[in-house]
Design a protein around this nucleic acid. Structure first.
Lengths: 202, 202, 202, 202
DNA sequence: TATGAATGAGGTTTCATTCAT
DNA sequence: TATGAATGAAACCTCATTCAT
């Protein structure tokens, strides 16, 4: 009776995927709804059947994509017992993210800057950032409680760490030669060393 | 003939300043040439007399503005003898920059993402970044040579540090509550601690 | 087979009613087939099963509605013996119509003006107008034959009278304060006085 | 120095004229900005240089056109001494208007009905109507004061008269055979007779 | 019969750029 | 030099209509 159950979800996914491909390839402003229609193999009208506007489609696409990744990252962390171990893994995952999501940070910034209603547009990103920040803060504070790390204002530090990775994700867009793995490793090891309680090396 | 030169430069400066004001206020895409004409008190035609295109005007405006700052930063550093001291000062200057230049990183990213010829547009930023990177790398390597810092791949680390500050500059645009000073301080102290040779604290 | 007929007619009526509600509320162009689907509680596809096009649905809806009223009006007239009496009643009925049908004249005019095939669209209205005109002409000519009215070119006069009521129906749409009852009464009494044979007042 | 003084006004007039031609030919909704651009020999962009929107252009065009006529009509009236004489002239002028302005009433109704902001759109017409109404009311009340007409609620009567002419102007659009002159004459004479004080014929 | 997803032509508007003066 | 009128390509979005179930 309903062989078409989920057609709507499928279509939405199909459209968001096409949109993401176009957006990352050409940027938000340079991507036209026609581009997305062509990429998805659907008509422009259909795009508007599933999404209210270009803005709406963008937000949906970027959110779902980032959310997917977030879930995976958290799951992975569970298995690592020590705080430094967790941070190292997280760092590696973030590098992957930079490649997988290819410049989402820049993409979002473009969207945000171009949006006449920046306030609103910004919330989208703030929500995601805060969510991840909290996860990392918890790891560090746990490390502090365990005596692995020395007392530190974790919240502030995490903002800087996240900003570093977002910034690198952006850098790599126009500096493809940047060796993200090395950068990330040197960075995270320096930080871990800086966080370490004296005499303890992990 | 030569007195005219002054007029032309003045006009260019006048236009770039107006452009910068508009761009930072409304973003690259949302700023129209009409906006800039109105802000500068000149006519649209005049804008095109001094600048080839909107792209061109943007590049000129952002470059001159950032270059100004670069010179100042370097001059300041001279006076501080130790590497950690220099880094601390630099960090403080970078925070100021975030406020002064109000989200130039985001602005540039938007411009880059929106530009059909990204390659070209990216060069603008890469040049600036490399320039600053070299300065900071030199400081750190000096510290290593002095025995203040332990051996580290300075180049890689500096990319991460710069990315962090650029990222924070972007974050603060849509999270005005972010306390940049604290973030910067915790961040830089952790890094300095991580760089420090054992037993030595600065 | 025959029991189905009832269902079909019911559906048609249901749709026309919903259509009329939307059209009078928002005008012809501003009413979408989606609006009508929502108002009728049916799907858009169903609308097209019963009506060939938006044009078609409009014509059907407006015609059936006006036709209903026409029948009633004629029936009422029978009971009044004198020509002036009939005209007075007709005037009162026309005022009611203005309210009941809320600006059908304007609605039709919009439809007609928007229709790429005006010729065709116009016929719809001409047919209705001629039909009513003939009724009123007959009343006046009867009055003339009876000696109640002085000889007059009834046909021409009736066009003006009908135009007046249609025009008022339109006026009242954007001048809701217009007191239709008073306007109608002063108008009709002046006309009746103008038509009256000397010495006779009704 | 300014051979181009008045270029703006000239262009505006040129555009409004072209717009009016298109609007009366094809209706408001069926006229595209491309049509007007083609008709005026200008580019679409230029249309928007002089007028904020299609609505705006429509309002400007219709207002200026009707206003032109109004001035002429009033001037003509001065020369006729008696109230009936004035009304007869006015009637004749109104007939001319119907032809000259070819269905402005219908055009406006379409515009009004199609406008999402009807309130606002309606004001345009109300203002014009009230203006003319006052002129005619004044004529009739003068006639009453002179003893030419019997006491009557002039205001109400005039609304009906104006509605009749507007309605006729609309009728004639889809009934080109309607003999406006005769209709108008029979109508106005009947009204004048109805208004006349007993024993006086004009 | 009935649904609602899918279509795509076409509309209004914006805006970077040019050019006559 | 400077102006501002003029251009026109292109973008987003709507909506009457169709069609596979």
């Amino acid at each position: 009776m309903s062989p078409r159950v989920g057609v709507a979800d499928e279509r939405r996914a199909q459209i968001m995927q096409a949109a993401l491909a176009c957006f990352t390839r050409k940027g938000y402003n340079n991507t036209t709804m026609d581009d997305i229609a062509a990429e998805s193999g659907l008509s422009k009208g259909t795009l508007y059947w599933y999404f209210k506007s270009k803005d709406d489609l963008f937000a949906a696409a970027i959110t779902s994509s980032v959310a997917d990744w977030g879930a995976k990252a958290i799951a992975t962390l569970e298995q690592y017992p020590t705080a430094p171990g967790k941070l190292r893994v997280l760092a590696r995952r973030m590098m992957d993210l930079c490649k997988e999501l290819e410049g989402f940070f820049g993409l979002f910034l473009e969207f945000w800057a171009s949006s006449p209603r920046r306030e609103e547009a910004g919330k989208l990103w703030v929500d995601l950032l805060v969510q991840y920040k909290d996860i990392v803060v918890e790891i560090i504070e746990e490390g502090i409680r365990n005596g692995e790390f020395k007392p530190t204002d974790a919240e502030q530090l995490v903002w800087a760490i996240m900003a570093a990775y977002d910034g690198l994700a952006a850098y790599v867009m126009f500096m493809p030669n940047l060796n993200l793995e090395q950068v990330s490793q040197v960075f995270i090891e320096t930080l871990l060393h800086g966080l370490a309680t004296n005499g303890s090396e992990q």
